[in-house]
Amino acid sequence: MNDTIPARRIDATLAESPTAPLETIAERAGTTVADVVRRLPAGEAVCVDGAHFVDVMEDLAQWGEITFIVNTGDVILEARGEVPEGSIGRGFYNLNGKPIGGHLKADACGMIAFVSRQLFGSPTRSVQFYGHAGHCLFKVYLGRDEERRIKADQVEKFVALRERLAC
């Protein structure tokens, strides 16, 4: 997105509410969540091509307990657990685990974002998957320890994967 009217609306909304949920910012700015992610301040998001979908999912399966979120606008569904190892079959990346399982259409992913930002006063790290039209498919938030701090080993894995793919 270049410096257009939607870009200015995103920037203004981010300035008003810098820690608001991305979906709220997108709704207020009249655009997609993916457009908001692309306009986040420097250091808050690194975006890579969705072609890395399987590679990212395979890496996430090694991270331990995370929070898997699907936000439809009317429903925010969260599941805490480990991302199970998956396999490609019938056009889907199939996760056969509990509590996280399902069938994800890998080629529906147009962009993957590594997001580091404040949300409701707490630092967060997440890997977010976006469809080609800019809607969020799902998000994977790093886990927290007993003191509610982001797990340090997962931060290391997040940074390593982000840096490897952002080349």
Score class of each variant (00 low, 15 high):
Gly64Phe: 04
Ala79Tyr: 08
Glu146Pro: 06
Pro21Ala: 11
Ile76Lys: 08
Asn94Tyr: 03
Thr24Tyr: 01
Phe120Tyr: 11
Ile69Asn: 03
Arg80Ile: 01
Thr124Cys: 07
Ala61Gln: 03
Gly86Gln: 02
Val140Tyr: 03
Asp55Thr: 10
Gly91Asp: 06
Gly121Phe: 13
Phe129Trp: 06
Ala133His: 13
Ala26Tyr: 07
Met111Cys: 08
Gly110Lys: 09
Pro84Tyr: 06
Gly131Tyr: 15
Val46Ile: 15
Phe138Pro: 10
Ala15His: 10
Cys47Arg: 07
Leu77Asp: 09
Cys136Glu: 10
Leu60Glu: 04
Val83Lys: 05
Trp63Glu: 03
Ala166Gly: 01
Thr31Tyr: 08
Ser87Thr: 15
Val36Pro: 04
Asn96Gln: 14
Val155Asp: 04
Gly73Val: 03
Trp63Pro: 00
Cys47Gly: 03
Thr31Leu: 14
Ala106Val: 09
Ser87Met: 15
Gly110Asp: 08
His103Ser: 14
Arg162Phe: 05
Leu22Gln: 01
Arg149Tyr: 07
His132Val: 04
Gly134Asn: 10
Leu22Ala: 05
Cys136Tyr: 02
Glu27Cys: 11
Val70Ile: 15
His52Arg: 10
Gly134Lys: 12
Lys151Phe: 00
Phe129Gly: 00
Thr4Arg: 14
Gly30Tyr: 11
Val83Pro: 00
Ser87Val: 15
Tyr93Thr: 13
Glu163Asp: 15
Cys47Glu: 05
Ser122Ala: 09
Tyr130Met: 07
Leu77Ser: 14
Ala133Val: 14
Ala45Ile: 00
Met57Cys: 02
Asn71His: 10
Pro6Asn: 13
Leu165Lys: 05
Thr24Asp: 09
Pro6Ile: 08
Gly134Thr: 11
Glu27Phe: 12
Ile66Cys: 02
Pro84Cys: 13
Val75Gly: 04
Gly101Arg: 09
Gly101Pro: 00
